[in-house]
């Protein structure tokens, strides 16, 4: 948390080359990444939608653990509660109203042109990876920026009395945005009633 004290300027060029190796990726991280990757691919491959939804929940849980591992517990909690929990329930509810084609095939047939396009996109994005600073690099631009990150980390507690700087930003410094987000959630509930042609949630 002594980020604000470091006044060294950012050196993005130095943090280049191979960011993951320079930090040293642990076996835990590697297995988490493998888990998320495999579940993501399986979600697309499984023909049975129920299986896809269950694996998608596992994918969200893996992501939540990764977020927590990289010290973003607020995002991890949201991913676990919304992604793995509530979204899964909503998707299950939705497919319970549908029918499925009877088929013996366990997996979708692979659309190779689509795989090629996706692979190309992943390749293009992967080319930009070396430009990112290493995970947790104290000299990365986002941490040495005294005007934004440094300001919040050094003054959030004094100005708001909140130990959790994330909440301080959400509810105090950027309270107007949070107000808009809360209204969006509320509007989504009203819109779902409109789309479904109902006037009440429960009756």
């Amino acid at each position: 948390m002594s980020v604000a004290a470091t006044t060294t300027t950012a050196t993005p060029a130095v943090a280049g080359a191979l960011p993951l190796q320079s930090v040293g990726i642990t076996p835990v991280e590697a297995s988490l990444f493998a888990f998320v990757l495999i579940t993501a691919v399986l979600t697309a491959l499984f023909r049975d939608v129920l299986a896809s939804i269950v694996i998608f929940a596992a994918y969200s849980l893996g992501l939540a653990i990764i977020y927590t591992f990289y010290r973003a517990p607020d995002v991890g909690l949201t991913e676990a509660a919304i992604g793995a929990g509530v979204t899964t329930v909503f998707l299950l509810l939705t497919i319970a109203k549908t029918t499925r084609p009877a088929s013996d095939a366990r997996f979708e047939s692979i659309n190779w042109p689509a795989v090629g396009v996706c692979g190309l996109f992943v390749g293009v994005v992967a080319v930009t990876l070396p430009a990112f600073p290493a995970v947790g690099d104290p000299s990365s631009p986002i941490l040495t920026n005294a005007d934004v990150t440094g300001y919040y980390l050094s003054t959030a507690y004094d100005e708001t009395g909140a130990e959790n700087a994330v909440t301080a930003v959400l509810a105090a410094y950027r309270g107007f945005d949070t107000f808009g987000e809360a209204i969006v959630v509320f509007a989504a509930g009203i819109a779902s009633l409109l789309v479904l042609g109902r006037e009440v949630f429960t009756a």
Partner: peptide
């Protein structure tokens, strides 16, 4: 929410769950 990870959004989702 102000002193530990989480907040109204995550807590509200858990209460709804």
């Amino acid at each position: 929410g102000t002193s530990s990870p989480g907040g109204g959004f995550q807590g509200g989702a858990l209460i709804a769950s």
